[in-house]
C-alpha cells in the first residue's frame, strides 16, 4: 500500500515539478529570455533583462481577458490550455539524460512525438480560428503552411535517426536511441548524420515560430495573426507555449543527437547539461537566424523547407541507407 503511495507521489512529482510543469515553465521562459538577451547583444544593444519573459508572463496574467463577440467562447479559452498541457506531457515523455519517470514501457516513440508536436500548433490554429477575426484567418493559414513546410524535413530526419540506430531492425523508441549513443558515441559525431542535424536546426525556429520564420504571427502585417484577439491570461498561456516549445524542440535535438553520450550518473547534473545544451542550440538555431535574416514570405518559406532543408535531410537518409 505504502509502495503505491510512494509511486503515486513520485509520479505526481515528475508530472508537476520535474521534468514536468514547474521545471519546464521556468526553463522555457529562461530560454526565451536568453534568446532575447543574446539577440540584443548581437545587435549591440543592452537588451532586456534575462527575466523579461517572466515579467511579460505575469503582466499578461494580470490583464483583463476580453472574449470577442464573434468568438466561440469555449474553444477560445480551451485552446491555449490544451496546447500547454500537451507540451508539458511531451516533456515528461522525453528522456532527459536517460531519465524516464514512467519506466521504459511508457517511453516516447518518434512518431508519437511527431504527432504530439502538432497539437500545440493545432491548438493555436483552432484558437485563432475560433476568435472570428480575418487577421487570424490569414494567420492560421500561414501557420498551417509553415507546419506543412517543416513537417517533411522533420519526418525525414526522424526516420534517418531511426534507421541509423536500428540498423536493419525496427527502432522508433527515443529511449533506445538515447541509450544507443552511450555505447556508440553521440550521433552528432557520426559524419553522415551532420546534414540531418543541420536540417533539424532549421526546423526548430519554424516549429517554434521565431523571427525569420514567424510569418504566422507577423505583428507588423497581420497584427499577430492567430493571437490578434487574445488578451490577458490566454495570451500569457500562448506566450508560455512558445517558450516551452523552444525547450521541447531543443531537448528533442539533444536526445536525438547527443543522447546518453552526455549523461552522467546524477539526475540534477543531467538536467543542467540538457538545459545548457538547449540554450546553446537556441542561440545557434534561433537567435542567430533572427539576428541575420528578415522575415520570409510564406511561399519562400515553403520553398526553402521543401528544397534546401529537405535536401539536407534526404542526403543523410540516403547516406545512412547506403552505408
Amino acid at each position: 500500500m505504502s509502495e503505491t503511495v510512494v509511486t503515486m507521489l513520485t509520479n505526481a512529482f515528475s508530472v508537476l515539478v520535474f521534468p514536468g510543469l514547474l521545471f519546464v515553465m521556468i526553463v522555457g521562459l529562461l530560454l526565451a529570455g536568453i534568446d532575447r538577451k543574446v539577440l540584443a547583444r548581437m545587435q549591440k544593444r543592452k537588451g532586456p533583462p534575462v527575466l523579461q519573459p517572466f515579467y511579460d508572463f505575469f503582466k499578461l496574467m494580470g490583464k483583463e481577458t476580453i472574449i470577442p463577440d464573434a468568438a466561440n467562447r469555449r474553444v477560445f479559452l480551451a485552446a491555449p490550455i490544451i496546447g500547454f498541457v500537451s507540451l508539458v506531457v511531451m516533456v515528461v515523455l522525453i528522456p532527459i539524460g536517460g531519465y524516464t519517470p514512467f519506466g521504459i514501457t511508457f517511453n516516447a516513440d518518434l512518431i508519437v512525438m511527431l504527432y504530439l508536436l502538432t497539437i500545440p500548433a493545432v491548438a493555436l490554429i483552432i484558437g485563432g480560428s475560433s476568435s472570428g477575426s480575418p487577421y487570424a484567418g490569414i494567420g492560421i493559414s500561414r501557420e498551417m503552411v509553415t507546419m506543412m513546410a517543416y513537417e517533411l524535413p522533420l519526418v525525414i530526419v526522424l526516420l534517418t535517426v531511426a534507421l541509423k540506430v536500428g540498423g536493419g531492425s525496427f527502432c522508433f523508441s527515443l529511449g533506445e536511441i538515447s541509450a544507443w549513443q552511450e555505447t556508440n558515441g553521440a550521433l552528432i559525431t557520426h559524419w553522415e548524420l551532420i546534414p540531418a542535424a543541420i536540417a533539424f536546426l532549421f526546423v526548430i525556429p519554424a516549429e517554434v515560430g521565431t523571427q525569420p520564420f514567424d510569418v504566422a504571427e507577423a505583428e507588423t502585417e497581420i497584427c499577430e495573426g492567430p493571437l490578434v484577439e487574445y488578451t490577458g491570461a490566454p495570451l500569457a498561456m500562448f506566450k508560455l507555449n512558445t517558450a516551452i516549445k523552444m525547450f521541447v524542440m531543443t531537448a528533442l535535438f539533444t536526445v536525438l543527437f547527443f543522447g546518453n553520450a552526455v549523461a552522467t550518473e546524477y539526475l540534477a547534473l543531467n538536467a543542467l547539461i540538457v538545459v545548457a545544451i538547449s540554450a546553446g542550440i537556441t542561440v545557434l538555431s534561433m537567435t542567430l537566424a533572427h539576428a541575420v535574416c528578415a522575415r520570409l514570405k510564406i511561399e519562400h518559406l515553403f520553398k526553402f523547407y521543401w528544397t534546401v532543408v529537405t535536401a539536407l535531410a534526404a542526403i543523410s537518409l540516403v547516406l545512412v541507407w547506403c552505408l
Binding site: 544593444r45 543592452k46 537588451g47 507577423a218 497581420i222 497584427c223 499577430e224 493571437l227 490578434v228
Partner: peptide, 15 residues
Amino acid sequence: DAERFGFKLAGTPRH
C-alpha cells in the same frame, strides 16, 4: 534601446 525596460511594440490593441 527602449527594450531595456521591456518596451515592445505590439501588433494589436488587444495586447
